[in-house]
Structures are given as structure tokens and as C-alpha cells.
């Protein structure tokens, strides 16, 4: 029994890490008022950048930096379209996912099947992700910067009235989200696998988007949620001997639907940022 709890916890932490990293980024983006459905795509290019740089330079940490930079970079056109041009955020995000998956698949061809000489340990990523969650919670809860970020998502007019540029805040949050998704990808290609393959993200980006909602946009709750997803995913293979595998495979996703329905039924505010998904237009009343 003890062994069961221990192995489940270890696997939950490992599998939950990419979801947590990308989910934290998405929480920040959404807290600033921007829904970015491009997480899957940003994760994929991050994974490729990390692997390509780590493999050619021999320094895995350089790969890590490259993943964050490339993730942030590919989030920029999305930010431009959805914040500056005020395009539909959902459509722009889906486009980003397709762009990221396609681009990484195309550019990743030479790296398919190549081994990585110096992989990173999973445990390092796990610890870093947990620390990041705590740090991001602190920033959001206890600093002026965090207050501005939250206000940009709740009531952007106030932020504007304070003389702070709402667009800049949202750009920053989206780009930060991209960097985090890139790091999540780096975890996959540098530690979890560690190798590159087309489609390496296999839907994890979408779970990260669900995680942001499920955790009620709270960085610390996101840790618990990521652990829960990780545990469910692990158990879906562990319990195959006793429960139908088809059901187990659907379980994590079924769980998302159930929890989202429950939180929608709950009275009072859902915890979603008031201005989530609404492009900000300066000087216009909502």
C-alpha cells in the first residue's frame, strides 16, 4: 500500500510538471485578461528548441533558455493579433497551436530519433516548478505588480486610469505564458523523454488550459490540480488490470468536465477574471 502511494506520487509529480509549468503561464495570461489556447503549440516549439540547442551545443541549460525564449517569441504574434489588433482570442489561440505544431514538426525532422547526450533530471524540473508556483502566487498576491496584472484582467479601465499601459501588461503576461509553455516543452524533450519526436506534447497543452480554469486561476491550487491530473493519468495504466482501460483513459478528461460543471453550478463568482477574453479598447466603455 505504501509502495502504491509512493510510486503514484512520484509519477504524479513527474507527469504533472509539464501541465503545471504551462498551466501557471496560462493562469498569468488569463489573469491579465487574455485567453491563450495556443499552449499546445508553444509547448511543441519549446520542446524542439530545447532539444535542438541542447543537442548541438551539448549544454542542456542552454536548451532550457532557448525553450523559454522561443516560447515567448512565438507568443508575440498571438499577442499582437489578440491585444493590439483585438482579434478573437480563441481563434488566434487555435491558430497559434496549429502554427506551433506544424512548425515544430517541419523543423524537427533532422532531430527525430536522435539521442540526447546530456539529459536533465526530472526531479530538478519538479522542484523548480513547485518553487515557481509559490513564487508566482506570492507575486500575484503580495506585490503591486501582481495587483496591476490582476486588475488588467478584472477592470482594465482602472489600470488605465492609474496611468499604466494595459496593453503592455497584457503583452507581458502573454509572453511570460509563452516562456512557461516553452519550459514545459523543454521538460518533455530534455528530461521526460528525453528525445524529440513530432507530436511530443500529445495533448498536454490542452490539459494545461483546463488546469487554469480548474485551479480557479490560483497558482497554488494549480499545484494540487496538476498532481491530481498526474495521479489520474498514472492510475489509468496502473488500474487497467481491474477497471476497463477505455474508461480509465477517459477518466482525466471526464474529471475535467465534472469539475468544471460543479464549479459552474456553485453560487457566487466563479473566480474568472471579469474582463477575460475581452479585448481592451482604450477610452471605450464596456
Amino acid at each position: 500500500m505504501e509502495d502504491w502511494i509512493w510510486t503514484t506520487l512520484v509519477r504524479a509529480l513527474a507527469f504533472g510538471t509539464p501541465i503545471l509549468l504551462a498551466g501557471l503561464g496560462e493562469i498569468y495570461a488569463e489573469r491579465s485578461g487574455v485567453v491563450n489556447l495556443g499552449v499546445e503549440g508553444m509547448m511543441a516549439v519549446g520542446a524542439l528548441a530545447a532539444f535542438a540547442v541542447a543537442q548541438s551545443s551539448g549544454h542542456p541549460y542552454l536548451g532550457l533558455a532557448a525553450a523559454a525564449a522561443v516560447g515567448a517569441l512565438i507568443a508575440l504574434p498571438f499577442a499582437f493579433a489578440s491585444i493590439t489588433l483585438r482579434a478573437n482570442q480563441y481563434v488566434a489561440g487555435l491558430a497559434l497551436t496549429m502554427l506551433g505544431l506544424g512548425l515544430s514538426g517541419l523543423l524537427g525532422k533532422p532531430y527525430e530519433g536522435a539521442p540526447l547526450a546530456h539529459p536533465l533530471p526530472e526531479a530538478g524540473f519538479v522542484a523548480a516548478a513547485l518553487l515557481l508556483a509559490a513564487g508566482l502566487w506570492f507575486f500575484l498576491r503580495h506585490t503591486f505588480g501582481g495587483l496591476v496584472l490582476k486588475s488588467a484582467g478584472e477592470n482594465p479601465e482602472t489600470v488605465d486610469a492609474m496611468g499604466i499601459n494595459v496593453y503592455a501588461v497584457r503583452y507581458g503576461a502573454v509572453v511570460f505564458g509563452g516562456a512557461m509553455a516553452g519550459l514545459a516543452g523543454a521538460f518533455l524533450s530534455l528530461a521526460y523523454r528525453p528525445s524529440w519526436a513530432d507530436g511530443i506534447t500529445s495533448g498536454l497543452g490542452w490539459i494545461a488550459v483546463a488546469l487554469a480554469i480548474f485551479a480557479a486561476w490560483h497558482p497554488l491550487k494549480a499545484v494540487g490540480a496538476a498532481l491530481l491530473f498526474g495521479a489520474l493519468y498514472h492510475l489509468s495504466y496502473r488500474l487497467q488490470a481491474v477497471v476497463s482501460p477505455e474508461f480509465l483513459k477517459a477518466m482525466p478528461y471526464l474529471f475535467v468536465v465534472v469539475v468544471l460543471s460543479l464549479s459552474a453550478l456553485r453560487r457566487g463568482p466563479s473566480g474568472a477574471p471579469e474582463a477575460l477574453g475581452i479585448p481592451y479598447v482604450r477610452g471605450e466603455r464596456r
Binding site: 509519477r11 507527469f15 523523454r193 493519468y233 498514472h234 495504466y237
Partner: peptide
Amino acid sequence: PAAAKEATEA
């Protein structure tokens, strides 16, 4: 790959 990995770990 992710599913294969978790299945192996299990």
C-alpha cells in the same frame, strides 16, 4: 510516447 512512458512506469 508520453502514454508509453507512463504505461511502462506503471
